[in-house]
Design a protein around this nucleic acid. Structure first.
Lengths: 204, 204
DNA sequence: TCGCATACTGAACGATTGTTCAGTATGGTG
DNA sequence: CACCATACTGAACAATCGTTCAGTATGCGA
């Protein structure tokens, strides 16, 4: 099919899936080798060490996300609904069902490694500029603390991914699956446009 | 100081701290024994296995949270500001600074073990009833999907705990520390009462 | 055809893991 | 004092971990 060796790709694919499912520490190089139908030695040959493989998987996932955020950046001046529907959710719904990417994103954000920090920073910057554009265009209210507000939206959006299993068992639909995503987005849009709490009789 | 053995408590304390810092898999029983100044055998003697110790730590943390949520339940008919300030944040600010509890809560919610699921369910139920009470009292708008809205608030609140380090590096203040908590709560209250987005010219 | 780089195997290594267990120290009860 | 339950120690155990390495297979340029 191609000149690039099949073994290398199979190793990365298997590692991505297993890392996402069980976490880096709970997966041995022998598990990965067995899942990829290669020997343990081949992993060391291609990636030097288990940590080298981890970095390769990290880079691959981040590269995937970068390829997905570029079109989102181009749509900065587009309709506001995209942002309200959820920034990260918008990215993830482009993935095939059953993709290990959301679960790997979880590990990436919560393991404290530099790749996750860099990803969050990039997304935060993107979220800030999107919100700025919307505010200038009259699609978003002005804020006394635009930075905190952008982080607030971004973090809430990621929370849906981090805790989607808990959400699913609480309200009955998984926000990472199509129908659950629509329900979750509807609730978020409603909350972000009309508010949730009613201020205690203040004269504005 | 007391009739209960000091060794047992020291083991649980050390395990709680180390588990919170590094995660269960990255901590060995020898690490715990060294941190508690006991022998490895004593851990097995008291808890049977490493997993037994983990369950004991889980139970202790959940017991602590239960003791903190009871007064919150009693204040259901109280002022709305408590909920808007953040449910989980309200709990965590009762903890001493540098407490390993927030980090352990992270592991509890994301490791997928039953203790974490039970804790989320209990908090979700509490959040739902609080929001119901506020809606009935006119402090919250009516919602087309009260369950999803309660989960939305709850999840957003937990997200602040799960991602507080990313937030701190993005906006400069850590929402788990006093000043950062005030800033974050102010942004959340503003978003939840006045909204963020402006609907595209609809006649209501 | 020779030579060499690359892909790949699998046994072996030392280190670390959780667990077991025989043995010591202690303090209250008969 | 004798007895025994309990707290506690630390060496030893088998299993598993990531890594190393000598050796085989393959295919391409000289």
């Amino acid at each position: 099919m191609s000149t690039t060796p099949a073994g290398r790709e199979r190793i990365v694919d298997a590692a991505l899936r297993l890392f996402a499912e069980r976490g880096h520490d709970a997966v041995s190089v022998r598990d990965i080798a067995a899942a990829a139908n290669v020997s343990v030695g081949l992993i060391a040959h291609h990636f030097g060490s288990k940590d080298g493989l981890r970095r390769e998987v990290d880079a691959q996932v981040i590269g995937l996300f970068d390829g997905m955020t570029d079109p989102a950046l181009a749509a900065t001046s587009g309709p506001a609904a995209h942002v309200a529907d959820g920034f990260a959710g918008m990215l993830l719904q482009q993935l095939p069902p059953g993709s290990p990417i959301p679960a790997y994103l979880r590990r990436l954000l919560l393991s404290g490694d530099p790749a996750g920090r860099a990803l969050f920073q990039r997304w935060y910057t993107l979220s800030t500029s999107l919100l700025e554009g919307m505010t200038a265009a009259g699609a978003a209210r002005a804020s006394a603390d635009p930075e905190a507000r952008a982080a607030f939206l971004m973090v809430n959006d990621l929370a849906m991914i981090l805790l989607h299993e808990h959400i699913a068992s609480a309200i009955g639909t998984d926000p990472l699956e199509p129908d659950g995503a629509a329900r979750w987005a509807a609730g978020a849009v409603d909350a972000y446009t009309h508010g949730i709490f009613i201020p205690t009789e203040e004269t504005p």
